[in-house]
Amino acid sequence: MSRGVKAFYLALIMAMMAAPLLVVAGVSLNASQSLRFPPPEMSVRWYGALFGESDWLAAMRNSLIIASVSGLIAVSVALPIALHLWSRGNWLGRVLYTLGVAPFMLPPVITALGFLAFWISADMYGQMPATIISHGIFLVTLPLVTISLGLQGIDRELVEAARTMGATRGRVMLTVILPLILPYLISGYAFAFVLSLNEYIIAYMVAGFTVETLPIKIFNSLRYGYTPIMAVISVMFVVAAVVIFAVIGRFGDLPRLLGAERARGD
């Protein structure tokens, strides 16, 4: 296979992956309230109109609150597990790691139904804290994987040296370990944030009728027909995700973060 064939195959697949998003970006520019591609008349009026629609803004506010707080919860649960597993490597660490990545391996509807039953029993069904905590637990996987990867890259002798020089445990944590894993901490948070923003089924089951997030709002309006506002929101989601992952890719080692060990030595 020549380089040309390979490049063509990569480009073809990437074009297929980009096509639906490009069409959505196109229809968001329709001047009239219709979804046509290519748009007969172009306008960016729907981007402005979004900020006049209070129910879309409320959904956006909900989504941003849920994503930013649940990301923090996910990181705070993941960090001690990753540290415990890294420094001791015992059964407790391995069990917790497995528990932490489990929700992500299973079809999310199962976790969602579990949370629904739990919040009904706890009498918190339909409240925003229930959505936030559920997302926080569901998304532990992402910071857990990234922080563990970051810890694997730390030279243990560094920590030992600091200890022999008389640094306390807290000081080693603050001045050696945390600064070294900070990029992985941040990318773990960013992964969790983006996924919470896009998560539908758990948010829907736990509080879908009272706490409307953006994905829920989009799906609810899909039933009543298409509006260019939906295309505008979709474009914003794509742009937000690309920007966040591009920042991770710019400042972090994305190939390594995704498991290509060899990329480190190259």
Partner: peptide, 29 residues
């Protein structure tokens, strides 16, 4: 390429469904 694929992977199923139904629709497809 990985940034783009991660972005698509993180997209809500609602948005993917909406985008593909637009791509396969009569007026915009």
């Amino acid at each position: 390429i990985l940034v783009f694929l991660l972005a698509v992977l993180s997209l809500s199923e609602v948005i993917i469904g909406f985008s593909i139904s637009t791509l396969l629709s009569q007026t915009a497809g």
